[in-house]
Design a protein around this nucleic acid. Structure first.
Lengths: 94, 94
DNA sequence: AAACGTGCTACAATATGCGTAGCAACACAT
DNA sequence: ATGTGTTGCTACGCATATTGTAGCACGTTT
């Protein structure tokens, strides 16, 4: 339940998702996340760092081993969301 | 990304998680979610219903087929979170 | 009728997020 | 050394979201 509290905050999932493609600078991450305000981005990064999911490495922010691990469990959601948004759009049309 | 926006709202994940154990009444769900305020619970339920993840059935609120499907992808996160919170606690001790 | 549980709303207080501006530190070129 | 650029990040005021408490309207049971 603690995990849901952490992930159930705005942009937490998006940040992890974006970092899965590789290390990014603060600003790059910001623009990739639909221009989140730096205030929130910094807060989320701080939380995720404290939980050992993200770290500030050589090439900017990146997922830790635990973060990568978490992402592998998160990835299936991406596939599901595609078919889901597809079905949702079909319903809109009706 | 739309999915992350939906799930990245407070209690959205918790609601789905709780409903996975079976249908629940509004109030039961509320007390199981750490006494969320009814305002938020109702808002989340409305959103989740509009997205076809949750519905109001005979025995109270329950997951739709799509909701159940989503949960199967969510479930591995529960396992991961256990080992993760364990590791996190170990770090606190240090 | 009285008592209960149901889903849900109203309202004020608080927390959280957003958007903009801008700082300090560093790199590099002029 | 002075400008120019990028970096991570903070300050601040405003907007939105969430919380907590109270209570309504409805149906069922007593």
């Amino acid at each position: 339940m603690v995990l849901f509290d952490l992930l159930g905050r705005r942009w937490a999932l998006g940040i992890i998702w974006n970092l899965s493609t590789g290390p990014q600078t603060f600003r790059a991450l910001q623009s990739n996340c639909d221009s989140v305000s730096p205030t929130v981005l910094n807060t989320r990064l701080k939380e995720l760092r404290e939980c050992g999911i993200v770290r500030n490495g050589e090439n900017g922010y990146e997922l830790t081993e635990e973060g990568e691990d978490l992402f592998t469990y998160l990835q299936p959601l991406g596939h599901w969301s595609q078919s889901w948004s597809h079905a949702a759009k079909l319903k809109e049309v009706q």
